[in-house]
Design a protein around this nucleic acid. Sequence first.
DNA 1: GCATGATCATGC
DNA 2: GCATGATCATGC
Length: 475
Amino acid sequence: MNRIYKTKEEIIKRAEEILGFTLRNVINNDTVSGEIEDNLKKQGSNRKGYYGELVEEMVFNQKPNTRNEADFPLAGIELKTTPLKKDKTKKFSSKERLVFSKINYGNIVEEEWASSSFLKKNNFVLILFYLYEKEIDLLDYIIKYKHELDFINGISAQDVLQIQKDWEFIVNKIKRGEAHLLSEGDTYYLGACTKAKDSSVTTSQPNSEIPAKPRAFSFKQKYLNYIVQTKVLNNKDEEVKPISSQNKTIDEIVVGKLNRYIGKTDKEIVVKLKLKDFSINLKQYRRMLVNRMLGAKTSRIEEFEKSNVELRVVALEPTGILRESISFPKFEYKDIVKEDWETSEFRSLLEERRFLFIIFQKIKDSEDIIFKNFKFWNFPMNDIGKVKDVWEETKKLIKAGNIVKEIKKDKNGKEKKLTYFPGKKFNGIAHVRPHARNGADTTELPVRDRKTGLNKHTKSCFWLNSEYIRNFFEN
DNA sequence: GCATGATCATGC
DNA sequence: GCATGATCATGC
């Protein structure tokens, strides 16, 4: 007879029993039901979410429900399965975000955080981490660790406060009728990630006629990884330190640290911070100065790493213009031609990343710079269509092997390749430019370039135009 | 002055 | 050795 697990203790004990095993171990291979076999075939072995259903059925002997309550309502336990991956140094880290319940746009606008359906359902989450490996059957993933995520006692008050603010930010956006503009980069630890089988699926929202993508609450991958490292694996990284232990949100912490320096020159800041032996010749002088302004003890800041916030130090010209555009990681020509925009790397990156711009301004005829301001920023989804145009054009050119327009020599006899890639004037928002160590630093092309005849080209990346970014620095 | 290609410098 | 933040150099 299949055992039923009812109490919290029974369920956690059962989870412990299966650690180190695969689902195929847990059930005994020949009893894989015809129904499950059929499902695995039909859905391919990779349908996301199916693994969780299998665990519920095979390990806990219960049929998954879609009711808006915890998976084990009597015990008050929500069960989640999520993959771990091995990085280059063979360390485990979270492979994906941890997805919670779907956001019901219609109902959530009536909710308050303390009595929210989110907290109710996810009050106590039992997480099973399995080891993801490419090209192996779902039934053969090893279930490695379990973690009991207790929202009330298991997360620091500081993090809970940030999660609450994130939740409120998302709900307020829906209240304003902007569910279609939600973006993971809006928030810090708790994000609103898209949730649909197909990216073209949309749903209605209460205060606007514009259809929105269905979304779910989730812990960002980085935040989940923080939990994995510190609470599951106990791998405390001494290089990563928080800049505040106070019960404040990340916004408040940064405002509290940086406001006092606005309008001061770098030299004045050095004096104010009583930094000795701190010279303009230091490596990464500006970046180091900003670290000290933030009160960071090491160069890696816990609050930013947990929330996928990226610090960028920029310097406006004395006239106020921003000369340099913002670069992103280089892309692989081979990969981009296989991608679709909606699920592409660049689109995900743009949506998920949050920036903290630290804005200095150069002074005419002086070496000094002034700390003008700082700005949290993430890409506004209103403009995402324009980036899509740049991306599609780029993909088209690579696919056609139509990249190099002309090879020129400069006065030093150095070759310079002019390309057809969308430049800064393409649409004012994004463009493509080289991003390499030098001209010889190339990467493979899927199709030989017509002009050069080569199957490789200088590494390139997408850039956000300097003027576009500059617009967001006002006020 | 600006667009665009190219590359430096650091850190992992 | 490579990724990537940051910036330089050239030529129209």
